[in-house]
């Protein structure tokens, strides 16, 4: 995990919900001394044109990610499972609503 220099403001990842009902989407990051500042700065940086209905701020150091170098092996279990898709089961002509 990244160590934070005590003198630096930590990095925060910002997620914005643009409209009620939609997911919070990652929009970018910023530095701030605490959560309150992160959210207020996120408002000023990312929602100046009413892009936001809700903001989540998460310390970047608290985010764990899958490793890009393992990407192939990590996701390949899904590669050979075409039967998880509805197109694997062509419906005969005349069958409706399935």
């Amino acid at each position: 995990m990244a160590t934070t220099n005590e003198k630096d403001w930590p990095l925060w990842e910002i997620f914005i919900q643009s409209k009620r009902g939609l997911d919070h989407k990652h929009v970018g990051s910023l530095h701030a001394a605490d959560a309150r500042m992160a959210i207020e700065n996120a408002r000023d940086v990312y929602t100046r044109r009413n892009e936001g209905n809700s903001i989540w701020a998460v310390r970047a150091a608290d985010i764990h990610a899958s490793k890009p170098e393992d990407q192939g092996a990590f996701f390949d279990p899904a590669d050979d499972k075409v039967y998880r898709h509805p197109t694997f089961y062509p419906m005969p002509e005349g069958v409706k609503y399935i």
Partner: peptide, 19 residues
């Protein structure tokens, strides 16, 4: 609602495989 959107996408093969 958001959980349901995800579920509905996945359900589409369930009914077909049964049929």
């Amino acid at each position: 609602a958001r959980a349901m959107v995800r579920i509905c996408k996945e359900e589409s093969f369930h009914q077909r495989q049964g049929y």
